[in-house]
Structure formats: structure tokens, C-alpha cells
């Protein structure tokens, strides 16, 4: 690998790193909250709410992210009520915002399944005890159900974070220049295909490693009571 090429490729790909981080950060933030909402809907007694959450996750998990992205970016602009709504148009008209929306909606579906599993693993007795102690519904959720569910769900959620980081690469297909977008451009400019792949791939591996380490640290922090008793 020539030094000149590295000197040329690394700054360009680092420029993309910021965009990839932005796409990941915002879509995870939005997606986690949506996913939590969907998981609660799925577990609610209301058949309409749980049915909606179920179909939502089936549709978003059953179709490729690329199709969702193209449908939102190219397709939605055709609908007149989207065109007329200022807010919706603001989201759709820009590649980055549209990619964030698609990624957030997509990761919300997967997150809802993960959190649902976590919430279902909370023993009913604990919730009943909290109820008997006179905790309100919200307090019960905040103090008992959510903290226990998140401990159960964290390892699977770490995998989902990695999938979201990988998903951000698809934003390059709708004109967003993030790591993969720049990498493709560099590949066709320099013909140093493997070298560019190696640098871009290393950047993604570093992002994923950092995220996984953070999740592990959070997990260790939440599970510190077990480490002490051992």
C-alpha cells in the first residue's frame, strides 16, 4: 500500500466518519424511543395497539432497508399531502434527514422486538409487589420494569447497534456522502479498490468496537451487584 494513497484516502474517509456518526447517533436516539413505545404498545391489552405494533415490526423487518429508503426518498415525494406538509417535506427533501428517518423507523422495529423480550422476562411477582407497595403505573415502569428489561436486552441491543451502523452505509445510495459514499468515489478515482476498502472497513470496525465496548461497560455497570456477590 502506497503512503501517498493513504495520505489521500484517510482525510476523505474521516470526513465521512462524522456523517456516519451523525446518522447513527440520531437514528439510534429516535429509534430507541420509538422502539420502546412500540414494545409497550405490543404488550398492551388494547388489541388495536398491539396489532399495529405487530404489523409494524413485521413490515419493517420483512423488507430490505434499501427498499424502505428508496420508497421514502423517491416515492413519498409523489404524494400530494406530503408535498403540501412543510414538516414532512423538510424531512423527505434532504438525503441525510431522509436516511435518518428510514434508519430510525427500521431500527425501531428491531428494537421493539428486543425490548419486548426484555419486558416479558421481568417476573410478574416483582411488578405485583411494586403494585402492592402502592407505586403508580409510571413509577413501576421507571423503577422496576424498565431497569430489569434493559439489563436483559442490552446484549441483543448491542448487536442491533452494529446493524444500524452498517445500515448507515445505505445512505450513500441516496446521495449522502458518508464513509461508504466517499469510499465508492475513491475506488472509482484511484482504482486502489482493496486499499480503500481496508481503510473504510477499519473505520467501521473501530466504530463497532467502540459501541460494543460501551455497551459492555454499561452492562457491567448495571450488573455490578452480581460482580460483587461473586
Amino acid at each position: 500500500m502506497e503512503l501517498e494513497l493513504i495520505q489521500r484516502a484517510v482525510p476523505v474517509l474521516l470526513k465521512g466518519l462524522g456523517v456516519t456518526a451523525l446518522l447513527t447517533g440520531v437514528s439510534v436516539l429516535v429509534g430507541f424511543n420509538l422502539g420502546l413505545g412500540l414494545a409497550l404498545m405490543r404488550l398492551s391489552e388494547n388489541r388495536f395497539l398491539s396489532g399495529f405494533a405487530k404489523y409494524y415490526s413485521t413490515v419493517f423487518r420483512g423488507t430490505p432497508l434499501l427498499v424502505q429508503l428508496f420508497l421514502f426518498y423517491y416515492g413519498l415525494g409523489q404524494l400530494s399531502f406530503i408535498k403540501n406538509s412543510e414538516m414532512a417535506w423538510w424531512v423527505i427533501s434532504d438525503g441525510t434527514r431522509c436516511a435518518i428517518m428510514a434508519l430510525a423507523l427500521n431500527t425501531a422495529a428491531y428494537t421493539s422486538e428486543i425490548l419486548r423480550g426484555g419486558l416479558m422476562s421481568v417476573p410478574a411477582g416483582l411488578v405485583e409487589a411494586a403494585q402492592a407497595a402502592g407505586m403508580s403505573r409510571f413509577l413501576r415502569f421507571r423503577r422496576i420494569q424498565f431497569p430489569l428489561a434493559i439489563r436483559q436486552a442490552l446484549p441483543a441491543y448491542g448487536n442491533e447497534l452494529v446493524l444500524t451502523v452498517k445500515g448507515t452505509s445505505l445512505a450513500s445510495t441516496i446521495t449522502v456522502l458518508e464513509i461508504t459514499g466517499y469510499a465508492k468515489r475513491l475506488m472509482s478515482q484511484t482504482f486502489a479498490i482493496f486499499e480503500v476498502f481496508a481503510i473504510a472497513g477499519a473505520l467501521y470496525l473501530i466504530i463497532n468496537l467502540v459501541l460494543i465496548t460501551l455497551v459492555r461497560m454499561l452492562e457491567a455497570h448495571l450488573m455490578r451487584h452480581q460482580a460483587r456477590s461473586r
Binding site: 452494529v162 451502523v165 452498517k166 445500515g167 448507515t168 452505509s169 445505505l170 450513500s172 445510495t173 461508504t180 469510499a183 465508492k184 475506488m187 479498490i193 476498502f197 473504510a200 472497513g201 467501521y204 470496525l205 463497532n208 468496537l209
Partner: peptide, 9 residues
């Protein structure tokens, strides 16, 4: 750990 798209490229 690397996006599928990058591998395909």
C-alpha cells in the same frame, strides 16, 4: 462488522 455494501463494492 463491515457494511454489506462495502463488501459488495
Amino acid at each position: 462488522g463491515v457494511p454489506e455494501l462495502l463488501i459488495i463494492y
